[in-house]
Amino acid sequence: MAGTVARITEISARSDVSFDDAIKVGIDRATATLRNVQGAWVKEQKVDVTDGAITHYQVVLEITFVLE
């Protein structure tokens, strides 16, 4: 019987550009450390605001990777 087992880990990533960039930063960092990354779920999004302007975009990602 063949099958796979995956693990999910939660990470937070920030960017001063956009949510898309924050997701890319998080995925790039996760794949630098974890093997067999298969996907990610954006669990939360948040912005920091200073003087009425967005200064940072933050995402919480759940990263799925298959165990060897």
Rank of each mutant, 00 (worst) to 15 (best):
Glu10Tyr: 12
Arg35Lys: 14
Ala6Met: 11
Ile11Asp: 01
Gln45Thr: 13
Asp28His: 09
Glu10Gln: 15
Asp20His: 02
Ala13Val: 02
Asp20Tyr: 06
Ala6Trp: 09
Gly26Asp: 01
Val60Tyr: 02
Thr64Glu: 10
Thr9Tyr: 14
Glu62Cys: 03
Lys43Gln: 13
Thr9Glu: 14
Ser15Gln: 03
Arg35Leu: 11
Asp28Val: 08
Val66Gly: 00
Asp28Phe: 07
Asn36Gly: 00
Ala30Lys: 08
Val60Asn: 07
Lys46His: 06
Gly26Val: 01
Asp16Gln: 09
Trp41Asp: 12
Thr9Ala: 15
Ile63Phe: 00
Lys46Thr: 04
Ser18Glu: 06
Val42Thr: 07
Asp51Thr: 11
Leu34Gln: 02
Val37Leu: 05
Thr31Trp: 05
Thr64Cys: 02
Asp21Lys: 05
Ser12Cys: 06
Asp48His: 02
Ala6Glu: 15
Ala2Glu: 12
Trp41Tyr: 09
Val5Pro: 06
Leu34His: 03
Leu34Phe: 04
Ala32Glu: 11
Val59Trp: 01
Gly52Ala: 05
Asp16Leu: 01
Gly39Val: 08
Asn36Pro: 07
Lys43Thr: 05
Arg29Pro: 10
Gly39Ser: 10
Ser15Val: 07
Glu68Val: 10
Phe19Cys: 02
Tyr57Leu: 14
Arg7Ala: 15
Ser15Ile: 03
Leu61Gly: 02
Lys46Asp: 10
Tyr57Phe: 15
Thr9Gly: 15
Asp16Lys: 08
His56Arg: 15
Leu61Thr: 01
Leu34Arg: 06
Thr9Ser: 14
Arg29Trp: 12
Tyr57Lys: 12
Gln45Pro: 00
Arg7Gln: 13
Ala2Ile: 12
Val47Tyr: 04
Ser12Trp: 05
Tyr57Ala: 13
Val42Lys: 01
Thr50Gln: 11
Asn36Arg: 14
Lys43Pro: 00
Ala22Arg: 01
Asp51Arg: 11
Gly39Leu: 08
Ile54Thr: 15
Ala53Gln: 15
Lys43Cys: 00
Thr55His: 11
Ala53Pro: 04
Lys46Pro: 00
Ala30Arg: 07
Leu67Ile: 14
Arg29Asp: 15
Glu44Arg: 14
Val42Met: 04
Gly39Tyr: 07
Thr55Ile: 14
Thr64Tyr: 04
Val25Ala: 10
Leu67Tyr: 08
Ala22Ser: 09
Ile27Asn: 03
Ile63Leu: 03
Ala30Met: 06
Ala22Ile: 04
Val17Met: 08
Gln58Thr: 13
Ile8Gly: 10
Lys46Ile: 00
Lys24Asp: 07
